[in-house]
Amino acid sequence: MIISIASGKGGTGKTTIATNLAFALGENVQLLDCDVEEPNSHLFLKPEIKEEIPVIAPIPLIDEDKCTYCKKCMEICRFGAIAIVGETVLTFPELCHSCGGCIAVCPENAVSEMDRELGKIERGNLDLIEFISGRLKVGEVMAPPIIKDVRTYEKKDFINIVDAPPGTSCPVIASMKGADFILLVTEPTPFGLNDLKLAVEAVKILGIPHGLVINRAGIGNDDVKKYAEKENLPILMEIPFDRKIAETYSKGELVVRAMPEWKEKFLNLYNQIKELAGQRS
C-alpha cells in the first residue's frame, strides 16, 4: 500500500500528517520523504540515520577532438542543455535530464557519459518505522530523479507513506504516480482552496483514489467544504486550529506523542484510506 500525501499549497500540514500517521501505525510502515528540496520529516520523526547513498545522474561529456560541431546533440536536446557556438561546445549540466539522446545521435561517438551527483538518500529507522529521505544538493534543480530513487525503497507488504512536495509540477507527479491513495491536505482559506483545486485536477488525471484532510479547521471559510461536497471528495479528518497542536509542531514534536488521544484519530484515518483505496480493486 502506497499513500502519497500531497497538497497543492505549501505549508498546509503534509509533513504533520505523514509523520503522525507513520508514528500512529508504528510498525510495518515506512515514511518516504520526497520533498527533496526541503526534506523535514526527520525533524519530527527523529529517526536514527544509518546510511547515506549518493544519487547520481549521467550527463554528457563531449570529446572536442572528435566533435565536428554538427549540432545534432544540440538539436535533439529539448532542455537546451547543449549549445554549439562556432567551434565551442557548451554543456549546461543543471538542465540535463539524463535522457541519453545526445549520445545516441552523435555520429562521431564524441559524447560519453559522466557522473554528476544530484543529492543523496538518507536511510534509517525509529524503532519499527523505516525511514527514507531524499535530499537535493543546494543549487540543483532536478528533483524527480531523487524522488524516483527514494521511491525504489517502497516495500510491497508495507504501508508506504510518501510525503510529497507542494505544488503540481513534475516533482509532485513523481511523488504521486503509482500510489494506491492520495491524501490531500489543505487549509480552509482561499489560498488553500485555489491550490487544492489544482492538485485535485492533477490527481484526477492520474486516476488515483483520493481524500481530504482539512488542517487548521476553524480559520477561513466554508468554501473548501462546499468544494469537497461538489466534487465528491471525502473529508477524512479535520485538525482544528488549536494552540496546543501549533506549539507541539513548533517544538518539532509529534501530535500523536504529545496528545495521545490523536493516535486513535490517525488510525481511523488510515482505516478510511484502506477502505477507499480498496474500492478500486
Partner: peptide
C-alpha cells in the same frame, strides 16, 4: 515558447 534553455538557444542563434 521553449520548455527550458531559451537563453542558451537564443544565444547560439545570435552567435550564428
Amino acid at each position: 515558447n521553449s520548455f527550458k534553455g531559451a537563453g542558451i538557444q537564443a544565444g547560439a542563434m545570435v552567435g550564428e
